[in-house]
Design a binder for these strands. Structure first.
Lengths: 351, 351
DNA sequence: TTGAAAGCGCTAACAC
DNA sequence: GTGTTAGCGCTTTCAA
């Protein structure tokens, strides 16, 4: 069907090699020959067979991304934006992006990573939603397979990552509420096991402690990162007496679920209960009231992660394999104040 | 690095051919030999080189999906869910999914499709957000390349698709508002050129006409499918006198943006102005008030589209290459009534 | 039951 | 400048 080098060679009356070189732009081909070859290539609608080239070059020029999905009705806007980020960056470097989906910590996921770590599927992997003890990362380290993570872990092996400084973000948020006079602050924590959840939770405790504020155990509930999970989890908080005066969602989706429930209870968000989120998904600005949150530049994080991975694959160890992004506090009405923006999002590098 | 058939062959002392057959499960290999081969394969951590296999088999076992992205801050939840749907279905059939992103109708997009249509990149493509005159589809038809679209077009060529019946959905929505007594209904239409936007707009006009209700030209505004776009577009509607009593968003994101603006204007959604959306993204249930909308089973649509594509690739023409899904009206408080659900989502097939 | 040989389409080292 | 040869790792006739 599709034209091959051989077809062109036959047509022009030269060898396959010559055609290959002519088309690759080598200049050890007679101008005349080259021209005839190029012309014929166009005429025949030639397009190189990528698979053959890959086999020869021993690389796939493909990046892998295995999405941790949590079920069919899965639509975390994080992933759309993140994929756009890595996808565009990959394309800019002539890499393809292979995407697959697996439930976190499932056997299928393990197999997928194992499979990927063998040569020939992709040249490198992007890992997201890192876990405290992350089997994926351990496996990849073990096989010495190129990857970059969005997020850190508590595993021992050293690996390149991009991460947002969750601790700093949570500190900004808690301090913001404390400064507004709040003392009873509830938290809908991300599921245990997620590394960023760990940082956010710890930072919550720490910042409260720094302000000499006690934390009641029942001010902390856990949600599954979805709006539904946030709505369900906040119920426990709303049953408390006295009520918390502020509630922080471990991510925006849960904060949105919480806002919904708070309002269903006839309470006013921003007046009766202040609410904060985490992520600054585009929708957060369009809630009523708009959601105070921590901004994360997901698209850029995707780009950076991808760029770093490409460096790793090509043996250019990135100048700094550990990038930590400082988040920004976006104050909106859900915290009970006017809309202003504090502190520009600076990029800090540490090793 | 990674073990190859040759390595195993050398180790066991047989030919590559035998190893290949043993591992492929052929039973013309001596049980004893087979066993030794398998054992060695495991010991060496053998994993077939997919690229080589592809070159030999002349197929990539890979599906392509080119996301039409509209800019960096791009996070339409539709895509997360859709990718999860096609991804899982693809995996179930042992297909990989290659994802790339391009601005709709850009030169880059054209190139990407052109590239894909040549043999060797992917075995087939999934096309979404079909356009009235869709250059992608025309190109694919022309090259006779396997693909399935989510959505129809007005182009002439016949091709397999899955689509939701937008017209039916819009009819349900408009009729719902009309039945509630609304006569001045505003619409935030999707950008012109999108096929589903066309259906939704036409159906809006038709349903109004069927009810003998006039449509003022300035009741129709256009938004870019984002919450921001919805918020901006609704401004024109809110400047009208008399005000529309109901506003329909061309998708949920725009409806959410509209709700936000309406509330900013001090109007109550569900009481002063009824609002409806389209898509039933998970967030829509957690708005305040929860959003009346048309449910689309995005995940399932992704699955079906993908399954159909795999059929096409394998020359099994699907029983019915044109699937039309009947949408469901989800009534929530934004339309000013209690929450109930009308009419189960039935699946209708037509040719 | 096993192996030799060919070939998928391409690139690259090495002649000529 | 151009062609010959070899080989990437695998599958698949066809003989033995």
């Amino acid at each position: 069907m599709a034209a091959t080098l051989k077809d062109i060679a036959r047509e022009v009356g030269v060898s396959v090699t010559t055609v290959s070189r002519a088309l690759a732009g080598y200049n050890d081909v007679a101008a005349n020959t080259k021209e005839r070859i190029q012309e014929t290539a166009v005429r025949l609608g030639y397009s190189p067979n990528i698979t053959a080239r890959r086999l020869q070059k021993q690389r796939t020029d493909t990046l892998g991304f295995i999405m941790p999905t949590f079920g069919p009705r899965f639509s975390d806007p994080f992933f759309s934006e993140f994929i756009a980020g890595i996808g565009n960056q990959a394309a800019a470097h002539k890499y393809d992006l292979l995407v697959s989906t697996h439930a976190p910590d499932s056997e299928g996921e393990r197999q997928a990573y194992l499979q990927a770590a063998k040569r020939g599927w992709v040249d490198g992997l992007i890992v997201v939603r890192t876990r405290e003890d992350d089997a994926r990362i351990q496996l990849l380290c073990q096989h010495d397979f190129p990857f970059v993570a969005f997020g850190r872990t508590s595993n021992e092996c050293a690996f390149p990552y991009v991460d947002e400084d969750s601790a700093a973000g949570m500190r900004l948020l808690v301090q913001h509420f404390v400064d507004l006079g709040h003392e009873r602050i509830g938290l809908i924590a991300p599921p245990s096991g997620l590394m960023f959840g760990h940082y956010r939770l710890q930072s919550f405790y720490n910042t409260m402690a720094e302000n000499n504020l006690p934390v009641q155990p029942d001010w902390i509930v856990t949600g599954d990162m979805t709006q539904r999970g946030g709505a369900e989890a906040v119920a426990a908080l709303l049953a408390l007496d006295p009520l918390p005066t502020a509630i922080i969602g471990g991510n925006d989706l849960m904060a949105i679920g919480a806002i919904n429930q708070i309002q269903q209870h006839g309470l006013r968000v921003g007046q009766d209960i202040a609410v904060g989120g985490f992520d600054d998904i585009p929708l957060s600005a369009y809630m009523t009231p708009p959601l105070t949150t921590i901004h994360q530049p997901i698209y850029e994080i995707g780009q950076q992660t991808c760029a770093m991975l490409i460096d790793v694959i090509n043996g250019r160890s990135p100048q700094d394999p550990h990038t930590l992004l400082t988040p920004t506090l976006i104050i909106r009405e859900s915290s009970g104040t006017a809309t202003i923006q504090m502190e520009g999002g600076e990029r800090i590098q540490s090793n």
